[in-house]
Write a protein that binds this DNA or RNA. Structure first.
Lengths: 188, 188
DNA sequence: GCCTATTTTGAGTGATTATTCCACATTCAC
DNA sequence: GTGAATGTGGAATAATCACTCAAAATAGGC
């Protein structure tokens, strides 16, 4: 089962191709023909390395989902500001992966149980993280902290949505403004 | 060219089927086979009423896009509160159309030039509307009013996104909270 | 009840989809 | 260098896609 160097290289080429296509052409546009053509690989080689087209896609998707998280280990350590910054940095720094993630969250996830489950689970984790961070900086009830986290995350996700439609949209600036408004707001 | 009653009824069945599928299965899942099966119609009848599958889909999409707007005539009259309420009411009252709209905004619109253009244009219109409403209630610069509108809309769109993933999500309650926070916020 | 316009049927089209299979080429430990 | 493991090429597969067409069925004004 051990791979030769050549095999690993073509595997990388296939994943690069799949990643690029998912970001640019969406799930529909990521056909076998397109993947193979872009990776300069014939189908025989592909199926020598992957069991199915879906496996290659899911590999890229997992990569995208995991990349949204800033410090997977240090849960319960981040501040609200750090979490917001990390979220935005992900979109700015890895636009390709970010685009895949957002597209899956809305469109493609509906068809694939596995992907849909991952996205929802991942969102819950993030919500919990934001809630914890808020409770650490403000003396409030768990319910109110969660509501604040939900609104904050909704704002960020809304910005991400807009950025998806208009790539030139300055998400970072708007995220700063959202954070600014959150900081001066007081729980009543 | 005048249609008999039967033809009109079949047309409605096809559009119902297409609408239902777009909302539940997304653009990918809305295949001819699925449309025809659900509408209890054979392909010959379909193409007697529509030029293409895309025409049926676009008919439903236009319907969805237009339904987001509350008072297409009375532009420049609405208050911020009315606009927020109308936006939420659309999602609550017409979940099927709302789901189509959101899916198109993120996923499917990328491939179809026509649909993508419509969605973006429609978003710009809404942004302008929110901006105008804000300027009418607050003495502020156009740039600042637009920023406020952008953040407000981002929050609402973020809520819509979440609702898309979790249909039980109480979007109305969160929208009220967003509006409440916006009201007490002051432009500095 | 006739006659034309409209509607419906359903097998069949060609294009595209992911996937398979096997002969052949390459790699690399020994 | 030999040989077994791994990688590659490419034609062939069956499934599915949107769509066509001619014949049969129905509708409705007269």
């Amino acid at each position: 089962m051990a791979r030769y160097r050549a095999g690993l290289q073509t595997r990388d080429r296939i994943l690069d191709s799949t990643r690029w296509l998912l970001a640019r052409a969406g799930l529909d546009g990521t056909t076998m023909a397109a993947i193979l053509d872009r990776a300069k690989v014939r189908s025989g080689s592909f199926y020598n390395l992957f069991d199915s087209k879906n496996e290659a896609i899911l590999t890229v998707v997992r990569e995208a989902i995991n990349a949204v998280d800033p410090h997977p280990d240090g849960v319960g350590q981040d501040t609200v500001e750090e979490l917001v910054t990390a979220y935005v940095e992900f979109f700015i720094g890895q636009p390709t992966l970010a685009r895949i993630y957002m597209q899956l969250a809305v469109g493609g996830a509906l068809n694939d149980e596995d992907v849909a489950g991952r996205v929802i689970h991942h969102h819950r984790d993030r919500l919990e993280r934001f809630t914890d961070a808020i409770r650490r900086t403000r003396d409030t009830t768990p319910a109110k902290a969660q509501l604040e986290a939900e609104l904050l995350l909704a704002g960020l996700n809304g910005l991400a949505l807009r950025w998806l439609l208009e790539p030139d949209f300055d998400m970072k600036r708007r995220a700063r403004e959202i954070l600014k408004r959150w900081k001066v707001s007081q729980p009543q």
